[in-house]
């Protein structure tokens, strides 16, 4: 039963491992119910469903189409009907919070609760430390530009710029200009944000990239306190990654997602 150990290790590495479980079988094959087949991103497969021929058939079928959502699939085999459930470990979500100030603290807490692996960066030791951020996986106390050189982003990364001043926000933006991330946002008042964007444009940063930058960040919750602002940012991040509509459910009249 080292299957689950391997799955846990894969989950910790953030790998999108696929799991196929036999959930329906004719009477004579009922003993096979619950058998699992695990597919690793490198192409490795582990486990057996029913028998080798059945397993190969399932493998072929799973390779022929891309996994998009958890679903049950019927399989015809030897004139019998089987059902498999095709699921995938959700890939790890990461959040990189640039700035360790008042908003960062509740933001790091919210995002950690939401299962994001949180990294906090600030150049001031009195802000970038374990006491302030016990929930963070990584705390980097370094100049923003230097710290950002060590970090890469992907489609499952949220990058949140909440430094203590737009001078530092600019440093961050210059360091990551052109890089892709799942969510990229910067806090600020409309006026200051406009000035920053204008400056970067003049420096040659592409308009397309600047347009993808969410700024100012957060939803309109009427937020005032640092925790309220952090909540509005976390809410926007969730809606962004989950394809939400940023609206009160009651205004949708039952037309909920999913």
């Amino acid at each position: 039963m080292k299957l689950f150990k391997a799955l846990l290790a894969a989950a910790e590495r953030g790998e999108a491992v696929q799991m196929i479980t036999l959930v329906g079988a004719p009477e004579e094959s009922r003993a096979s119910l619950g058998q699992m087949l695990v597919l690793y991103p490198d192409g490795r497969a582990e486990g057996l469903l029913v028998d080798t021929r059945f397993t190969e058939k399932v493998l072929e079928q799973s390779k022929a189409c891309q996994w998009d959502q958890p679903k049950v699939m019927p399989i015809s085999y030897d004139q019998q009907e089987y059902r498999i459930f095709w699921n995938c470990l959700t890939s790890k979500m990461r959040a990189v919070i640039l700035g360790g100030g008042h908003i960062s603290q509740p933001l790091a807490s919210f995002l950690a609760q939401l299962d994001y692996e949180v990294t906090v960066i600030d150049d001031r030791p009195e802000f970038a430390n374990r006491q302030r951020f016990p929930m963070a996986k990584h705390i980097i106390c370094e100049d923003f530009t230097k710290a950002l050189e060590q970090i890469s982003f992907d489609n499952n990364t949220a990058v949140i710029i909440v430094t203590r001043g737009h001078r530092y926000d600019l440093d961050c933006l210059r360091s990551i200009a052109g890089q892709r991330a799942g969510y990229l946002g910067m806090i600020g008042s409309f006026r200051r944000v406009k000035a920053v964007l204008q400056l970067l444009k003049e420096e040659g940063v592409s308009t397309e990239w600047l347009n993808a930058l969410k700024t100012p960040i957060g939803l309109d919750l009427g937020a005032q306190s640092p925790a309220e602002i952090a909540l509005s940012i976390a809410a926007e991040i969730v809606a962004h990654f989950k394809g939400g509509r940023y609206l009160p459910l009651r205004s949708l009249g039952g037309r909920r997602n999913g």
């Binding site: 039963m1 479980t21 959930v23 009922r30 003993a31 619950g34 699992m36 049950v72 459930f85």
Partner: peptide, 14 residues
Amino acid sequence: MEVFIQVFPGSSCP
């Protein structure tokens, strides 16, 4: 909703 109950260890489970 349809829920699969997968029992461990079971004669039928890995």
